[in-house]
Amino acid sequence: MSLTLLSAAEHVRRQTALAACGLDRDLPMTRIVSYANETWLGDTLVLRINHRGVGRLAREARIVSALPREALYPEVVTVGHDDEIEWMLVRRVPGIDLGRAWMSMTPVEREHAIHQLAAALAAVHGTPIEGIPDDDFRPQPAFRPPHTLPLGPLLELIDEVIGPHDPAIVELATEFVTQRWSAFDDADRGLVHGDPHLENVLWDGQRVSALLDLEWSRPSWSHADLEILLAVADSPRLFAAADYDASIDPSTFTEMPRWLAAARPDWFAHPRIVERLEVLYLSRTLGCFEDDADAASFRWDHVAATLAGESFIQRPTWRSI
């Protein structure tokens, strides 16, 4: 768990949400780092607050209501809004982020954790998608999901991100994804988690106790979740918080693709899985561009490697499975 500095506005929003939930507005809670929402941790409850447009947490709660118990999502106590902010209150589940626990775990524990994570994700993927809307991020582009799909929005993203810098690369990237798009047939479609890196998974010391944060969950191809997990295995420090990323030993992740394949061989069975993963990796990389010049340069290297056939997707590390 990583703490964050607080503003008076954050405290007011917390008190407003707690009071609306029928709780003591001064209930002791600790603000923890969270990308999209303000997240407060109490002894038995977790409060998430969205102040950037009402509706995203309510959508997540509707998805959660359809999940089987095997998906390991914590119990939702209530969700609500006051037209300015919305909140979700859930039961706190014992455990710490799997990514944070990883270096203190034995290889056997890590393998078991990956198998349990795969089982929870398979339960998500098997959830009926009738009535579950796609995630339309366009009103709030700052909350673009990790993978921009299908083909039309992805081509728009290529123009948006690459176009101002190099029209020739736009042409290469457009050709790259359009040539591979026929790999995205109807196989392996279902409900995806959307962002299943290890900071969205809890480990209680013996087992995976929860799968968190379905804000980017939507009907899509299950390989979207697999691509992120393979990326974690390849570059785990990119998915770790700044307060502990330097302590991560990447060599402890080298077996993770094999563990995933043993747990869910069906995830690796599609005859054009490499082409799918290539497109998904490019999509996520383009969606990760930031204003920081160093980060942008780093992402450009990833785009160049993908288009040249030299990204981790094309390397034999996991393809020998």
Results as ranks from 00 to 15, higher is better:
Glu75Asn: 10
Ala61His: 01
Pro271Leu: 12
Ala295Leu: 15
Gly95Met: 10
Leu191Phe: 03
Pro164Arg: 00
Gly131Glu: 07
Leu172Ser: 14
Asp166Glu: 04
Ala120Glu: 08
Glu227Asp: 15
Leu198Glu: 02
Phe137Thr: 09
Leu282Phe: 11
Gln140Met: 15
Ile321Glu: 01
Val46Ala: 05
Gly194Lys: 05
Arg180Gly: 13
Asp213Val: 00
Glu215His: 08
Val208Leu: 13
His165Met: 00
Asp26Ile: 00
Phe289Glu: 06
Val54Asp: 09
Pro133Trp: 03
Ile132Ser: 03
Arg319Phe: 03
Leu47His: 05
Ala113Glu: 06
Asp249Tyr: 01
Trp300Glu: 14
Gly42Asp: 07
Pro219Asn: 05
Ala262Phe: 04
Met88Ala: 03
His197Ala: 03
Gly126Ser: 11
Leu226Asn: 07
Cys21Val: 08
Glu171His: 08
His147Asp: 14
Leu198Ser: 06
Thr30Arg: 14
Leu214Ala: 02
Pro153Ala: 04
Ala293Met: 10
Ser222Lys: 11
Leu47Thr: 10
Arg272Leu: 13
Ile248Ser: 01
Leu280Pro: 04
Gly53Glu: 05
Pro133Thr: 08
Val177His: 08
Glu175Gln: 13
Val33Ser: 06
Leu5Arg: 09
Ser34Arg: 01
Val33Met: 02
Thr317His: 06
Gly190Met: 01
Gln15Lys: 08
Leu23Ser: 02
His112Ile: 13
Ile49Met: 08
Phe312Val: 02
Ser222Leu: 12
Ala242Leu: 02
Arg110Tyr: 03
Arg319Gln: 14
